[in-house]
Amino acid sequence: MSERVFGVFLLLLAAGGIYFGWDLRAPISYEPVGPRAFPLLVFSLLGICAIGLIATRRPPTEWAPSPVLMRIGAMFLVVLAYALLFDKLGFVISTALMSIPLARFFGGTWKQAAIGGTGLGIALFVMFDRVLDVALPTGFWLKPLLG
């Protein structure tokens, strides 16, 4: 069932790709094959495969039991929030905030999560930004402190 739903999604994707790809034409063309042919070919093949996925009998997908699935969803949202706040809060704080719920999901106690998260944030910042010269966002609060 899940695979068929996914097949419908892919079919819509293929249709959308062909729709938006139809008008891809170069204003001046020097070559027989323009920018449109390859995407249209790929999206058409994707459409055909999507129909194959919808039409054939599929073995059922084994999803994780729903409490686990909830936790995985929550973890995805935490990482997404991390991505959004990475730049604004700076590396140290955002990493600590992300690590605490993730550590809890993987069986850490509150204390372990808090200490581990803060430690990770500081240690990785020092390692990358200071030692390895990979610039990381300091966030609005750390910048004045570092000068």
Partner: peptide, 19 residues
């Protein structure tokens, strides 16, 4: 333990993308 490994991998991955 995974409770320190997983946040660590997540953070290092983001560092990579951000770089």
């Amino acid at each position: 333990p995974n409770w320190i490994l997983v946040p660590g991998v997540a953070a290092v991955s983001m560092v990579g993308v951000y770089a």
